[in-house]
Design a protein around this nucleic acid. Structure first.
Lengths: 300, 300
DNA sequence: CCTTTTATACTCGAAGTGAGTATATCCGGC
DNA sequence: GCCGGATATACTCACTTCGAGTATAAAAGG
């Protein structure tokens, strides 16, 4: 049994939320995600990336999770024999340690995906996108219905509701339909800021994963400072999901999960009535997972 | 920027359900998962694996999804410079095309994880396992409480309910506690059949992923024959989850999802009243994902 | 024909969820 | 000092979902 030889590379989607805006760490003025070789000295992939991020950015990395491994033919390294295998990771950085809005290297998610931010209602750009997608659907003869269903489902058309988790499917549809420059579309007719190679697709993968994850695991707290108000927490979740949430219900949800506790202090920096400060209950909850069982169990 | 050189290998967790028993495709008489080199000629990882599985097993592969990429130091290939990167995949094979219970290569999941099958109630082996885990908890002084919480949570002790999704956590705890031969435990004091290198851990990853997935995506149907009865469907889900389900509620769940339709025929092979046969509604549902939104949305 | 076995259908109460409304406490201006 | 704006916090209600139990239907076999 022979083993294929390949180049191994790590790519990181590092996110933080500052000023109610979700941001991603980039290089080349926002054109690429940070990446580097997988050094042989590392104990594991995870450890390798953690070390490397620490060196490169100076930010301590909280949560870290593997995203996906890509090895498509078009990823072949130019001057080398063999191909490149890219292993991508999602990492979360605390707001405290993260740089401010203006700092270099960090760019807002929605610069690359303006159609994903629904906090101010359905973005206007979606009208133009769905019009172009309809043309693309109409241009197909054989499997037109299938295309139509995919578009309707992903973009919340024809009765379907907008689902914030489907960011990757939306990007992939737009790629297929030739609406992004990465797919060869001229910049004037494309949507959102593009990135080097398939980095924008990897970013979409990271965003989709994080949006799905905040619903069943308490990862938001990896993005929060030590103490925070409930409104701050809600606005952070809203920034990530690209949606506005119902305030009373959000608070009910948070407190029935018993994920946080009052610090005893309050802040009046918010304008109106002072808000109580809370902290995440690290100790108790390291192993917590919402049961979320959708199977009809029987207890015998 | 240099790129690290590495050996690339694909490892597959191929599962089927035959005779109400979940099975995995193995090599070396059940001691290892099938694996092979990542050939340079393939278009992508996915395509590479699909082709390779077809050649090796003769079974057409339905569903295929990437599981995880491993590259720990202990995975280094003996005779080679550099290390091995193992990219693992989860694949589902239809019962029809799958071999019967006796055929070589296929082994039951619960041979490797006897504590994971709760269809006949809590397995007796769990008593011995938790006893040994309690010793392990007690042997720690500093972070004992943390260990205790991890064990209680993963194994459904001290008020916590058994959660079938936590199979990987359970295996990892048992590994840490030295209860499996892969961790150096003598066979007489270990639990479950072991596998080569970290293959059993990869199998646990696949099982956990599949158990979680059946709750929010209709992947079970990838394991069913063209037409099936509701009881058959339920027993397949039960086999995967390692749990018994409440029949009336299972049927209600299935039919409110509108995932299946009657074929018009019935079968009386089941003993009692003849059961209606159903088929999966492929066409309509290729893009379906249960919304499962746990965020308190507001609709403005 | 009656019992056993499996399939299918209906009901009920508890819990969860979406949505709206009411009260509390600060700030700043008059 | 009082009042309106702004934000925080608390409560209520209807509707849906979900776990659990019960009842009826249709076959096979003695």
């Amino acid at each position: 049994m022979t083993i294929g030889l390949a180049h191994a590379e790590l790519i990181a989607v590092l996110s933080a939320v500052t000023g109610d805006e979700p941001r991603v760490m980039t290089v080349r003025s926002g054109d690429a995600l940070p990446s580097g070789p997988f050094e042989l000295g590392h104990r594991s992939l995870q450890a390798g990336l953690r070390e490397w991020v620490g060196d490169q950015t100076g930010h301590p990395l909280g949560y870290l999770e593997q995203l996906y491994t890509f090895a498509d033919r078009d990823r072949t390294h130019e001057d080398a024999e063999g191909r490149t295998i890219s292993i991508s990771y999602l990492g979360l950085v605390r707001e405290q340690a993260a740089p401010g809005a203006g700092k270099p290297g960090w760019h807002g998610w929605y610069e690359y995906f303006p159609w994903e931010d629904h906090r101010g209602g359905r973005p206007e750009i979606l009208a133009a996108i769905t019009r172009r997608l309809q043309d693309w659907v109409a241009s197909e003869t054989a499997r037109r219905e299938h295309r139509q269903r995919r578009v309707d489902f992903a973009f919340g058309l024809d009765g379907a509701a907008w689902n914030e988790d489907l960011g990757l499917q939306r990007y992939e549809l737009m790629y297929e339909a030739g609406l992004v420059t990465e797919a060869g579309c001229p910049p004037a007719k494309s949507f959102g800021r593009s990135m080097f190679a398939d980095h924008r697709r990897i970013l979409a993968t990271g965003i989709a994963r994080l949006r799905a994850k905040i619903k069943y695991r308490p990862v938001v707290f990896e993005l929060m400072p030590e103490s925070f108000t409930l409104s701050q927490l809600q606005r952070t979740v809203e920034a990530l999901a690209g949606l506005t949430l119902h305030k009373p219900n959000f608070r009910r949800l948070i407190d029935q999960q018993e994920l946080i506790e009052e610090t005893g202090e309050a802040t009046s920096e918010t304008g109106g009535r002072p808000a109580k400060l809370f902290r995440y209950r690290h100790a108790v909850l390291e192993e917590r997972a919402l049961s979320g069982s959708k199977l009809p169990l029987s207890r015998n």
